[in-house]
Design a protein around this nucleic acid. Structure first.
Length: 722
DNA sequence: GAGCACTGC
């Protein structure tokens, strides 16, 4: 009766929910220690993974259910094994493809090459991957494809039914990235009882179930697998009770999968981690983190320590305190290393080097070690209980970085980092009572903390007209939504009916950048400076190209002057780009000029992708040579909403924004700092004790009305007449 | 005269 499930002998043992809708599989180990004769080492290793003993159950559930949720800790092998199980069972026959999404590029690459190795095939043939800038797949050959969720979202723009896939596995679903939430909202088309606050994964499941239900009329073979590290039992149960009451019972027709999701729990391979809490709340977590590390070093047997703090300043301070203690105090044998994304590649790699004999490694890290990087050899974790998060204020239109308490889910993830090689210990710098009673279960999803301009334009491009009524997994504020619509309207991307304009709106949606940058590129077409503006767009879309040279700030500033342009930072980028090309893209040249070589390489990659996109959109690639006026006009066409005027009698360089009359200042890292031209537009604001404009270019105010007559006519009557 | 959690197309 089943087409794909090929059970060798026994049917998996399943426990049915009382009301018959949901299947829970009880983890009864099947024989996994069968003889390894005749098998390769790789196959034996595969069989030792915890997920292997669920193979039959997983295939059975996927065969009979539109959606299967797999809850499992890291180390269970689900990411590498499940796609292979599916392929072995025939889900990739007849030219169909099994897809598996990941939130991060690095994970996509490493998982894909691991699976290719296990299957003994060449990466890019039977097993391939797609991330931005890299499509290592072959249309005729690739049967298992790994990709970032952002890439899947882009693919949906061309193929909303995702018709080439037989199974889509969404991995790491608990992370709730912006892309995941957009994807989920898109998939949820049928209004359904979602009145009570639901667990994320249940919601996610529901959305994907509905997607498959919709598509199943045409393609009854599409299956969805959601894999997540966390699930909350109570809201899950509540949800399914209300679902089963209303449903008519599972469908019994052959080959039609039941729509209620199946849930399977797979144990991980991590070791136990013992948790310790402080008895009294601590007032200074930095100091407490340092003293906790010292007492671990003093009292506990060997094993490396990972400390979670919030940001670069805290981390550098902690590193210094511990290093001093290690060199001058009684604490010998500590090797203290910082870890955050702003470090150079070489410094980041230090934390992966083996710990020297007789030493104990202490890594002081931001959240980067919570999910993005995995350190081996960690036995002790010290968790400050805080992290930095981005918050967007739609009223002021400013994004801020704020130190906030972490969620229980994060706390568990951090603790788990201690149990990878043997049983570990986690020291939480907060009380148990706080953890139990006050800490929220999960963090605030990214969609509720972000500027929505990009999200809204993606929805519009996918034909969702009513974005205000759009049903998100977690709704963003209406202020944020309205702000995004206003910005897109002022850019000429949306018309009076809030529909994408043609061709401009569709073109902006096609370019994978912030819409203001995309608009700037479109404007460069008429102005004849697309080559220069595309270069600027690439530089604006990566993090700083300058090295943060601690202790050498003065040298950095002096070096920058070699490239500084009177027009501003955007033109300065063009000078850096020229210099880099003249050096034959030399890493040494970068080093001598305080420029981050890897950032430069990335900028060049983005630039190449943008040139291809521009050509596809019919933008002529043209250089304006040395005419920087047209370049500045193009920047103004995208960023007119960020126009600022120097206050007439300001002695300290105070500007006011044209739109809201907010006080802003040019950031000291800008080449226009202390130059203070009368009119400028900025790329972004950073908010500390003051609002600082980053990446600033001087403009002529008459260009503003030229670029956005509507904006300056209606939003701010006569702003230029002062 | 000063500061940047982390992803992604």
């Amino acid at each position: 009766m089943s087409r794909f499930w090929k059970p060798g002998a026994e049917k998996p043992r399943l426990l049915e929910d009382e009301e018959g809708g949901v299947l829970f599989f009880s983890a009864s180990p099947l024989s996994s220690s069968s003889s390894g004769y005749g098998r390769t080492n790789i196959e034996m290793l595969r069989q030792r993974l915890p997920v292997y003993k669920y193979r039959t159950a997983i295939l059975y559930l996927v065969e009979t259910h539109a959606t299967t949720i797999i809850v499992g800790e890291t180390g269970s092998g689900k990411t590498t094994q499940i796609p292979q199980f599916l392929k072995e069972a025939g889900w990739a026959d007849e030219g169909r493809v099994i897809a598996c999404t990941q939130p991060r590029r690095l994970a996509v690459q490493s998982v894909a090459s691991r699976v290719a190795e296990e299957m003994d095939v060449k990466l890019g043939e039977e097993v391939g991957y797609t991330i931005r800038f890299e499509d290592i797949t072959n249309n005729d050959l690739t049967r298992i494809k790994f990709l970032t969720d952002g890439v899947l979202l882009r693919e949906m723009m061309d193929d909303p039914l995702l018709s080439k896939y037989s199974v889509i596995m969404v991995d790491e679903a608990h992370e709730r990235s912006l892309s995941t939430d957009i994807l989920l909202g898109l998939l949820k088309k049928v209004p359904i009882l979602l009145d009570n606050a639901l667990n994320t994964i249940v919601y996610l499941t529901l959305c994907l179930t509905m997607l498959s239900t919709q598509i199943q009329r045409r393609r009854p073979d599409l299956r969805l697998i959601i894999s997540s590290a966390t699930i909350e039992a109570r809201s899950m149960a509540d949800f399914f009770v209300s679902r089963t009451r209303r449903s008519q019972g599972p469908e019994k027709e052959e080959n039609i999968p039941v729509t209620e999701p199946a849930i399977l729990s797979v144990e991980g391979r991590g070791f136990n981690v013992e948790i310790f809490y402080v008895e009294e709340p601590v007032s200074d977590y930095l100091q407490k983190a340092v003293s906790t590390v010292l007492s671990i070093h003093d009292q506990e047997p060997g094993g490396d320590i990972l400390v979670f703090l919030t940001g670069q300043d805290d981390i550098d301070a902690a590193v210094q305190l511990l290093t001093e203690e290690s060199q001058h105090g009684r604490q010998k044998g500590l090797m203290v290393l910082p870890l955050y994304s702003g470090l150079s590649r070489a410094d980041q790699e230090l934390v992966f080097s083996p710990t020297p004999r007789g030493k104990r490694k202490v890594v002081i890290s931001t959240n980067i070690a919570e999910t993005s990087l995995t350190l081996e050899g960690i036995v002790y974790v010290v968790d400050s209980g805080f992290s930095k998060q981005r918050f967007y204020n739609p009223i002021s239109d400013i994004e801020n970085l704020v130190i906030v308490p972490i969620s229980k889910a994060s706390a568990r993830q951090r603790a788990g980092r201690a149990g990878r090689i043997r049983p570990g210990k986690c020291y939480r710098l907060y009380t148990e009572e706080y953890f139990l009673k006050e800490m929220s279960a999960v963090g605030i999803p990214e969609i509720q903390r972000s500027n929505l301009v990009s999200a809204v334009i993606q929805l519009k491009a996918l034909g969702i007209d009513n974005v205000l009524g759009f049903d998100w997994p977690a709704s963003p504020s209406s202020e944020a939504m309205i702000r995004a619509l206003e910005v897109l309207y002022s850019l000429g991307v949306l018309d009076d009916d809030a529909k994408l304009t043609s061709p401009e709106g569709f073109q902006v949606a096609e370019i994978p950048l912030d819409p203001m940058i995309s608009k700037m590129i479109l404007a460069s077409n008429q102005l004849g400076c697309s080559e220069e503006v595309i270069t600027i767009a690439a530089f604006l879309s990566i993090q700083s190209i300058w090295y943060t040279a601690k202790g050498a700030e003065k040298e950095l500033d002096e070096t920058k002057l070699r490239f500084a342009a009177a027009e501003g930072d955007h033109v300065t980028f063009l000078n850096v780009y020229k210099g880099f090309l003249q050096s034959n893209k030399s890493s040494k040249w970068c080093h001598n000029n305080f420029i981050n070589y890897h950032a430069m390489k990335k900028a060049l990659e983005v630039r190449e992708q943008l040139r291809r996109t521009a050509q596809r959109l019919g933008i002529a690639l043209k250089s304006c040579d040395d005419d920087m006026q047209v370049v500045r006009k193009a920047v103004t066409a995208g960023f007119f909403a960020n126009a600022c005027r120097l206050e007439a009698y300001s002695h300290n360089g105070m500007y006011k924004t044209v739109r809201t009359s907010q006080e802003v200042y040019i950031h000291p890292s800008s080449v226009l700092f202390r130059v203070n031209p009368k009119w400028v537009v900025y790329n972004s604001l950073v908010s500390t004790d003051r609002q600082y404009m980053r990446n600033v270019i001087s403009i002529d105010p008459s260009w503003l009305r030229e670029a956005a007559p509507h904006f300056y006519q209606y939003q701010q009557p006569n702003p230029l007449a002062r």
